[in-house]
């Protein structure tokens, strides 16, 4: 009991995240949660995020799709989290987890289809792996000097093996892994491990990363190049000319080609109606 309290004092963020994983799992039926339950508790779907539900960018990082998924991610969190939180500090650890989760979600919204649902904390966990690599890089005497040591090499192997598994297994979202990894690495390298006084471009890199993250987040909320968002814009527009413009743009974006016919628009309308019915069904069940 004393050990547990001491741990809770030392690594509160890791324990809170693990607790959140388990709590959300029990709220959504831990054995095999249904799509309705996951939808209600905040799974990530690009079209929902752009429809005014931005919290899904973060809530999805606490949801899991079953026992195995939950066990695997909790194990990884409890293996990596404590050491990382002790080195970084709890506030930075919390920031790292959230930013990495955001990075994974942004990657999914930008790359995967607009109706692709995603759950899981693995994007954030990959961000933690990226943070370890970044810390080793910053602490070693030369940029690649950390590769001389066994520990960092193991972390790199772990990242590669997991990316390979993600590439092979169809229902794993490697996009989220890569997004989380990149943002976790960059965030730790530029913000969490102090300033590099000898590199004059360091502050410029900080501003650039910040600008990129903000810009991509705004694009995820208002995706002007994605067909589903354009289509919804067309539905709420009262101006007839503007509506037609948006419908044509949406259909073009949907088809990925430039010549659009009237029947293409009708087909998309039917498609969109069925998506809407499906989503409405999910949220009302």
């Amino acid at each position: 009991m004393k050990d547990l309290l001491q741990q809770a004092d030392e690594i509160p963020v890791t324990l809170v995240v693990a607790l959140a994983y388990v709590t959300m799992a029990f709220l959504t039926n831990p054995a095999s949660p249904t799509p309705e339950q996951l939808h209600q508790h905040g799974w990530l779907m690009a079209t929902l995020v752009s429809d005014g539900e931005p919290w899904r960018l973060l809530t999805c990082a606490f949801l899991h799709g079953g026992w195995l998924h939950l066990a695997f991610n909790t194990y990884a969190l409890l293996r990596v989290g404590p050491a990382l939180e002790r080195s970084l500090g709890s506030v930075r650890m919390a920031a790292l987890y959230l930013v990495s989760a955001l990075g994974g979600s942004l990657a999914v919204c930008l790359v995967s289809g607009p109706f692709q649902p995603v759950v899981g904390g693995s994007g954030a966990l990959f961000g933690m792996f990226g943070a370890i690599v970044a810390m080793q890089m910053r602490q070693s005497r030369s940029t690649l000097g950390f590769l001389n040591y066994e520990g960092p090499r193991r972390v790199l192997s772990l990242i590669l093996i997991n990316l390979l598994i993600g590439a092979i297994v169809p229902f794993i979202s490697n996009t989220a892994h890569v997004g989380g990894l990149i943002i976790g690495f960059a965030f730790t390298f530029l913000f969490l491990t102090g300033t590099n006084k000898t590199d004059k471009l360091f502050p410029a890199w900080r501003v650039a990363l910040l600008a990129l993250t903000v810009s991509l987040t705004l694009h995820t909320l208002q995706p002007s190049t994605r067909w589903d968002w354009l289509w919804r814009q067309a539905r709420v527009t009262e101006d007839q000319e503007r509506r037609e413009q948006l419908q044509f743009a949406a259909t073009r974006s949907f088809q990925g080609k430039t010549d659009v016919k009237r029947y293409d628009i009708q087909f998309l309308e039917a498609q969109m109606d069925s998506y809407d019915r499906e989503l409405k069904g999910l949220s009302t069940k």
Binding site: L209, L218, H219, T225
Partner: peptide, 14 residues
């Protein structure tokens, strides 16, 4: 990185 950051903004304005 800056070009990648400015592209979505440009798209939105356009």
């Amino acid at each position: 990185v800056w070009v990648a950051a400015l592209l979505p903004v440009a798209f939105y304005l356009l």
